[in-house]
Amino acid sequence: MELLVAIIIGSLTAVGTYLMLRMRTFPVIVGLSLLAYAVNFFLFASGRLMLNSPPLLYVEGPHTDALPQALTLTAIVIAFGMTAVAVIMALTAYLNGGTDKLDMENEAPEVTPEERGQ
């Protein structure tokens, strides 16, 4: 089981990284979500894997470690917030720039001394 979990997390990381290296915003957001899955699952699994032993005290023990679960719970919600901000940033860039390409194609526009405030 441990091996399966490690493979899943590794694959999520690999594909997430690959997608984050694409050149358009949408695959990058999908890649970011996959990476978030991987990180959250990793965080949770760092409490070690146990079957049928939820950290509920009215259930007969042993109980699994609850702390990574609590941390992961908020991490999942924060990951949503992060994705939402990334989505809006991607939309703003697309609508303002006319393209959803991630990389700037031209060199940075020359900033005149006046714009620098001199």
Binding site: G10, G16, L21
Partner: peptide, 11 residues
């Protein structure tokens, strides 16, 4: 690069 990262995290 992705495979390297995945392999590392998985391991």
């Amino acid at each position: 690069i992705g495979a390297g990262a995945g392999l590392g995290i998985g391991a």
